[in-house]
């Protein structure tokens, strides 16, 4: 299996589930198809003199690219020939099944060899409103998986990138990933570094970290999840089925402990963890970064930004990092915290 970074593929997803799981929050599941159905992309791959090896290898009836936690899909949120809502909307993947892993979210919806992708979407404007009002059976144009996710090296290792043999990959993004992981103190250069992971989520930041929790369960790793929500009606019910140590906080105390995710953070012994993954409000991620840093534990954050192309071209989603500008779509959305926080 090959897991791409930014060179995702265009695919048509068929909406198979649209369930309102919280106030203005929808769980969407899409069935996607093997890449052989993706004619336009295949044509590009076959004819391009300098095409990307990741997408080319997948062009001939192979499974669609599988996302790993932290990666996103760029959704067209209007009819194909409409000029309304010109831009796509980036949505982080909540889960993927139909590859070698079984479905965790609502497995009953799956039949045969379907590839299913799950998303949790909060209605935030006209685009997400359109998406969440679609009926089951609707076809949606999606581009993905895109971006760099949390350092699940196992996914990269399976791509035959020579993580353990020291072989230098031909893929520049993997070289970056390798050096990035090596450089990191107590880094994640091997699966072993994911032995006990602290996940810190705030609000919709739960999405990539729920996916990460599922992935860690599949790998047989330990984790603690600290998840903060404004209120019970914003809570994601899928958290109930997680097998790890899950600690829920709500601002108003309507579910779990009254307080914020950062309160949960103060209550854990960071030295017990090998790495911290966080996603949510900037202040929360910053707190996680500084606490982790004090214990020499690496911390990864996921950023969001108003996005244009989603594939590293237009420069619209760029945010100011600690040392240089960061393209959220293609260099992230997951970054080592110290790349962003000073």
């Amino acid at each position: 299996m090959i897991y791409g970074k930014s060179a995702g593929e265009y695919t048509a997803g068929v909406l198979v589930k649209n369930e309102e799981t919280g106030k203005n929050i929808h769980l969407l599941a899409f069935r996607i198809f093997p890449s052989s159905k993706n004619h336009a992309q295949r044509r590009v791959d076959e004819n391009s003199k300098i095409s990307n090896p990741v997408s080319r290898k997948h062009a001939h009836g192979a499974p669609p690219l599988r996302p790993y936690p932290g990666q996103f899909y760029h959704f067209l949120c209007s009819e194909n020939d409409s000029f309304e809502r010109i831009l796509r909307r980036p949505l982080s993947a909540l889960d993927a099944c139909g590859w070698e892993t079984e479905c965790t979210v609502n497995a009953e919806n799956r039949s045969g060899n379907d590839f299913l992708l799950y998303f949790l979407v909060e209605i935030a404007g006209v685009g997400t409103q359109w998406l969440c009002s679609l009926e089951e059976g609707s076809r949606v144009d999606m581009l993905g998986p895109l971006g760099r996710g949390y350092p699940f090296v196992s996914f990269l290792k399976q791509a035959g990138c020579g993580f353990h043999t020291g072989e230098v990959s031909r893929e520049p993004f993997l070289q970056e990933e390798i050096s990035r992981n090596r450089d990191q103190k107590g880094g994640c250069a091997s699966e072993g570094a994911l032995k006990n992971v602290l996940l810190v989520a705030g609000g919709m930041g739960i999405v990539p970290l729920y996916f990460a929790a599922l992935e860690l369960e599949r790998m047989g790793r330990n984790y603690t999840m600290i998840a903060g929500f404004r209120s019970k009606d914003k809570l994601f019910h899928g958290l109930n089925s997680l097998k790890g140590d899950v600690r829920i906080y709500t601002d108003d105390g309507t579910s779990g402990t009254k307080g914020m995710a950062s309160d949960g953070l103060s209550a854990v012994d960071l030295s017990a963890y090998s790495v911290v993954f966080t996603c949510g409000p900037t202040a929360m991620m910053k707190a996680a970064h500084f606490m982790a840093d004090a214990f020499g534990v690496p911390c990864y954050i996921s950023l969001t930004s108003r996005m244009g192309c989603g594939i590293g071209l237009c420069g619209c989603c760029v945010v100011k990092g600690a040392k240089k500008n960061l393209r959220v779509c293609s260099e992230g959305p997951v970054f080592i915290a110290s790349d962003f926080f000073k």
């Binding site: 809502r85 010109i86 831009l87 685009g127 108003r306 420069g315 989603c317 760029v318 100011k320």
Partner: peptide
């Protein structure tokens, strides 16, 4: 280039201010 946000969608169009990064 310019500070974020650099892009905003309007009806039938897009505003951007990347600032020649």
């Amino acid at each position: 280039g310019n500070p974020a946000p650099r892009i905003w969608e309007i009806s039938c169009g897009v505003l951007n201010a990347v600032g020649l990064e």
